[in-house]
Simulated scan of single mutants.
Amino acid sequence: MTEQRFSCTACGACCYGLLPLTVDEALKSAHRFPLAMAITPIKPGARGYRSAGSISASVVLPSKKTALLLVTPVSFIPTSMPCPELAGDNLCSIHIDKPVRCKAMPFYAYKDEDHQRDMLVPRAGWQCETSADAPVVYRDQKIVDRGDFDEERNALLQQAPALRRHVELLFKHDTVFSTRVVKATQAPLAGRVVIGFVSFLRYNKELNLMDFARKQQPVLESWARKTAGDAKVAQFHQYYREAVSDLDRYISV
C-alpha cells in the first residue's frame, strides 16, 4: 500500500497567477476576475491524456494530424500577482463561495485520478504540510476524499460539449485563431492560445452580453492599469487592453 499525506497551511502561495474556472463560475465572477479563454494543446502520451480527451476539442491540423485542445475559462492573471480575492492575511475572502478549482486543490480534475501523485509535491515556496502529521489523502493511486475532485470533474464534463463546439468552429472559420493554434501545437513545450472570454458568449442568445460587459470591463481596465509599464507582464497588459476594446461594442449599444 502506498500513501501520501497532505494538508493546507493557508500560506496563500498557490493563490497567484492564472486560475481555471468553470463557465458558470466565470459568468458569476465577471465583476471579480479578468476573464479569458485559454486553449492548450495536449501532447500525445502526456499524463492525464485519457481524462483530457473527454473534455477537450479535436481539430485536424494542416499536417492531417489530429490535435486535442484543452479549452478552459480562466482568471487571467500573471504568475507574479495574487488573486484579487486573496486577503491581506493570506486567506481567501470568498472561501464559502470560492471556485471549485480551489476547493479541489491539491488534486487536479483535468488529469487522470491515477496520475495525481505529483500534485501532492509542494512547489518551491509553498508551505503545504506533507509530514506524518498530515492526513492521508491519496492511497494506492486513489483519492481518499474525492467529493471536490468529482464536483470539478463533473462540471468539466458538463460544459465540454459547448466549449468543444466553440473552439472547433473558431478553428474552422477564424484563420488568425487557427494559425495561432497550429503554432502552439508545434512548440517543443505545449503552447497556449488566449482569446477573449466574450467570444464564447456571442453565440449564446440566453445571455445578456451588455450586462456581462458592464461587469467585466471595469475589472479588465483595473488590471490594465496594474500591469502598465511592466515589461515582464506585457502579454497580460496587451490582452486586458484588447479585451476592454472588444467589450466596448456591447456597452455602447
Rank of each mutant, 00 (worst) to 15 (best):
T2A: 11
E3Q: 15
Q4L: 15
Q4K: 15
R5D: 04
F6Q: 07
C8K: 13
A10N: 09
C11W: 09
G12L: 09
G12T: 07
A13Q: 15
Y16I: 03
Y16Q: 08
Y16E: 04
T22A: 08
T22M: 05
T22I: 10
V23W: 01
D24Y: 00
E25D: 06
S29P: 01
S29C: 07
S29Y: 04
A36E: 05
T40K: 15
K43N: 10
G45M: 12
Y49M: 07
A52E: 05
S58D: 11
S58W: 07
V59M: 09
S63V: 01
K64L: 12
K65A: 14
V74M: 05
P78W: 08
S80R: 11
P84V: 03
E85W: 10
I94K: 07
I96L: 14
M105L: 14
F107S: 05
Y108I: 02
D114F: 13
D118M: 07
M119P: 00
P122E: 10
P122D: 11
A124Q: 14
G125R: 10
Q127H: 12
C128I: 01
T130S: 07
S131I: 06
S131N: 13
D133T: 11
D133G: 15
V136M: 02
V137L: 04
I143N: 07
D148L: 05
D150N: 15
R153I: 00
A155S: 13
L156W: 07
Q158V: 14
Q158M: 09
P161Y: 06
P161G: 10
A162G: 02
L163N: 00
V167M: 04
L169I: 06
V176K: 12
F177N: 03
S178H: 10
S178C: 08
K183N: 14
K183H: 13
A184T: 12
L189P: 00
L189F: 11
R192W: 01
R192T: 15
G196T: 10
G196D: 15
F197E: 02
S199W: 06
R202A: 04
R202P: 00
R202G: 06
Y203A: 10
K205P: 02
K205W: 04
K205D: 14
E206F: 07
L209P: 02
D211L: 10
F212M: 01
R214L: 13
K215A: 10
Q217I: 08
P218I: 11
S222M: 06
R225K: 15
A228N: 13
A228I: 07
D230H: 13
A231Y: 09
A231R: 14
K232V: 02
V233P: 06
Q235H: 11
F236M: 04
Y240M: 06
V244G: 02
D246L: 12
D248E: 10
R249A: 13
S252P: 00
S252I: 14
